[in-house]
């Protein structure tokens, strides 16, 4: 294992983040604050409580997930798309490193950044509402697993994408709707029965439900199911990545 290379990629990618620190951190903080003003204060004042939690506090886990999913996906996608696009990928391909090490470096950096943003949003939220974390260990586990699996997903996206439109379209057209419809801002039980069933096909429901459980102890779906679904998603992404590197799909002619 060429750990030196993993470290180099990781540090190189992280330093890209620090160079664009302002847009990396300020924008999620700003958009979260806006969500609180709109949903928490303006609308939330009319909704009062969901599952025994104030609406403002209720949306915190969903908000964190919304940003973390989008950030993990687009960061990882961009991280590997960029060298492909400008041609510096030749260096990765000609270096004595395995695919696993490339993935560890890029996905590790993207997941770290998403995790940091998730925690920053949590802190920001704490300024607006009272937050309790019933199961801190599980909260972190959910967060880390989500960061890693969606960074893997983003990595796949970045390899697959052949232009910038494709790169941006997937987070915009797939991730955002899935998160919005995945119960970020409401409890699934508030939907009509038909839609409750449709929603169960949305993988993000399990994420948000599990994550919210780690805060308030209430969940839309069983917690075991949530964990199983994340593990499944992670396994599928790993499988696809293994296949990409085995066949050289879109990276090697």
């Amino acid at each position: 294992m060429n750990l030196q290379a993993v470290k180099s990629i990781y540090i190189f990618e992280m330093s890209r983040t620090f160079r664009t620190l302002l847009q990396s951190i300020v924008s999620p903080v700003l958009s979260t604050s806006l969500y609180f003003v709109v949903f928490g204060a303006a609308i939330g004042s009319r909704i009062q409580e969901v599952d025994g939690v104030s609406y403002g506090a209720f949306i915190v886990p969903g908000l964190i997930m919304l940003t973390v999913l989008t950030q993990a996906t687009s960061n990882a996608a961009f991280g590997i798309y960029f060298p492909k696009f400008i041609g510096t990928i030749y260096e990765l391909l000609s270096a004595p490193i395995s695919f696993l090490e490339i993935v560890m470096g890029y996905v590790g950096a993207a997941a770290t950044k998403a995790l940091a943003i998730g925690l920053i949003i949590l802190l920001t939220a704490a300024f607006f509402v009272d937050i309790q974390i019933a199961h801190p260990f599980w909260m972190l586990t959910f967060l880390v697993l989500t960061c890693v699996s969606f960074s893997l997903f983003g990595f796949i996206l970045g390899i697959w994408a052949q232009n910038f439109e494709q790169l941006q379209l997937v987070p915009l057209l797939v991730i955002t709707p899935l998160v919005f419809l995945g119960g970020s801002f409401y409890s699934i039980s508030m939907l009509p029965p038909l839609w409750q069933n449709v929603t169960l096909f949305n993988p993000v429901v399990y994420l948000i439900s599990g994550f919210r459980w780690s805060f308030y102890g209430t969940a839309d779906v069983a917690i075991g199911l949530s964990i199983t679904m994340i593990a499944l998603f992670l396994a599928i992404c790993l499988g696809i990545i293994w296949w990409i590197f085995k066949t050289g799909y879109r990276i090697k002619t």
Binding site: A5, S8, I9, I11, F12, S15, E91, A95, P96, I97
Partner: peptide
């Protein structure tokens, strides 16, 4: 930095 990165990639 970019030159050092290459060295790192090669372990």
């Amino acid at each position: 930095r970019t030159v050092s990165f290459s060295r790192g990639l090669f372990g």
